[in-house]
Amino acid sequence: MDKARVALLRTKIASLPLDSILQRDECTTAEYLRREGFTSSMIDRFFTPFYEGIFFAPLEEQSSRMFEYVFRMFLAAPASLPSKGIGAVTQHVAAPLRDKIQLNTGVKSISMNENGGGTVDTEDGQKIEAKVIIVAADPLAASALFGDRIEPSKPRGCANLYFASDQAPPIAKPILFLNGEGRSAGVVGNTCFPSSFSETYAPEGKTLVSTTVIGDDVHRSDAELERLVKSHMSEWWGSNYVNQWTHLKTYKIPFSQPAQNVPFSASKGVEVGRGVFVCGDHRSAPHSQRCYLVRNPGGEGHTQILNRLVRASEELIHENFGDLEQNFLKNY
C-alpha cells in the first residue's frame, strides 16, 4: 500500500505549479505524511532517515512546503554529483572573477549611504566604498553586521566523515544507504560510496566512503565520532571490511542550513538598504536549485540585485563620462 501511496503522491506533487508549492497551506512533514496515509513503518524506515539527511532536523521540525518542493525536484531529475566534486560548481562560477576576489579578509562593519551603497570597513583597516554591496553570509554573521534587520535563524548542523578503503564497496551500485532502524541503532544517518558514482572520486584501486551524522552526536569529539561510525558500519558491512578503512577527514558543519520550521517563508527579502543586499539560503528556500533561479516566488531578490547593478553601472558611466555625453548630444 505504501508504494501505491508514493505513486499517488508523485502524481499529486507533479501536477502542482512549481511557483505555488512554497505558498501552499503547510503543516509539519510528519503530520503531512500521516495525512497522506503512509504507515508508521514507511515513515520511520524511509522518510525519516532520507529527509532528516536532507534537512538535518526531525520530521516534526520540517515544513511540508519544503517537503513538497524537494520531492518535486527529485521528480524533475535524479540526484547527482559533479564528476570533480561539488566544489567544481563554485569554482566554475568564481572563475571569471578570480583575480578580482580578495580572500581571507574579515569585515568589521558596513555603513550605508542614503543615496545607495555604502562603505565596507575590513578588519585589516581597509575602507572600501561601493554603490552596491552584497553580503552572502549565514544569518549569524549577517545579523552581526545589520542587527535586527536580519531575523535570527536556528542552525541545523551535520558531520561528514570520509574514509578510504583498499577494497571494492560491498554493493557497487550508486546507492545512498539509509539508517532505517533509528539513531538508537547507531550514529550514522546515511552512507554511500561516492567512487561508485564517478571514478574521479578515488584513485584506481581505492574506494571512497562517505558517512553523515546529524543531531546531538555531531557534538562528540572527532575521535569518538570515528569510533562510533566504524562500529555502526561494522554492523552493516562486517568488521573485516570496515576495520581496514583509513580515516581521511571529519568535517563538522554547525550551520549547514537554517531551520525550516512551520511557519516557513521562502521569500524574506534581500534588500536591507538602498543598494545593500543580504543573500543566502536563510532568505529563501535552502536548496541548491534556488541558487540558479531568477524568476520565482523566492527569486525576486536576484532580480532586485541585477536591476540595482544595472542602475549602478549607469550612474558610474554618467559620473565619469557625463561631460563627454553632453558634448556629444550638443554636437550631434
Rank of each mutant, 00 (worst) to 15 (best):
M1E: 13
M1L: 09
M1Q: 10
D2T: 12
D2M: 11
K3L: 12
A7D: 07
L9R: 02
K12A: 14
P17R: 01
L18Y: 06
S20A: 15
Q23D: 13
R24Y: 03
T28M: 10
T29P: 05
A30H: 14
E31D: 14
L33N: 00
L33H: 04
M42P: 04
F47S: 01
P58N: 08
L59D: 02
L59N: 02
S63G: 08
S63Y: 05
S64C: 06
R65K: 14
M66R: 04
F67P: 01
F71A: 03
P78E: 14
S83F: 07
I86G: 04
G87C: 13
T90W: 08
A94L: 15
A94E: 13
A94Q: 12
A95L: 12
A95D: 14
P96I: 09
N104Q: 14
S109Y: 01
M112I: 11
N113H: 09
N115L: 12
G117W: 00
G118W: 04
G118M: 00
G125N: 05
I128R: 00
V132W: 02
V132Y: 08
V132S: 01
I134L: 11
V135L: 06
A141Y: 08
S143W: 04
S143F: 02
A144S: 14
R149A: 09
E151N: 06
P152C: 12
R156Y: 14
G157M: 01
C158A: 10
A159C: 11
A164M: 10
A164I: 06
D166Y: 10
P169T: 09
I175S: 03
I175E: 03
S184F: 07
A185H: 12
G186D: 03
G189W: 00
C192S: 12
F193G: 00
F193Q: 00
S195H: 02
F197S: 09
S198C: 11
A202H: 00
P203N: 07
L208W: 01
S210T: 12
V213K: 00
D217G: 02
V218D: 03
H219A: 15
R220L: 15
L225V: 05
E226I: 14
L228Y: 07
H232R: 04
H232V: 04
T246S: 13
L248T: 13
K249M: 13
Y251R: 08
K252L: 10
I253A: 03
Q260G: 11
N261H: 13
A266N: 08
S267Y: 06
S267P: 05
K268V: 09
G269T: 06
G269A: 10
E271N: 08
V272C: 05
G273H: 06
G273M: 07
G275Q: 00
G280S: 03
G280I: 04
H282G: 04
S284C: 15
A285W: 00
H287Q: 09
Q289V: 15
R290G: 11
R290I: 10
C291I: 12
R295I: 15
N296G: 15
P297G: 08
G301M: 05
T303F: 13
Q304A: 14
N307D: 15
N307T: 10
R308C: 14
L309H: 00
A312K: 06
E315C: 02
L316A: 13
I317M: 10
N320A: 07
L324I: 13
Q326F: 06
N327S: 11
N327E: 10
F328I: 11
F328K: 04
F328M: 13
N331G: 08
N331L: 15
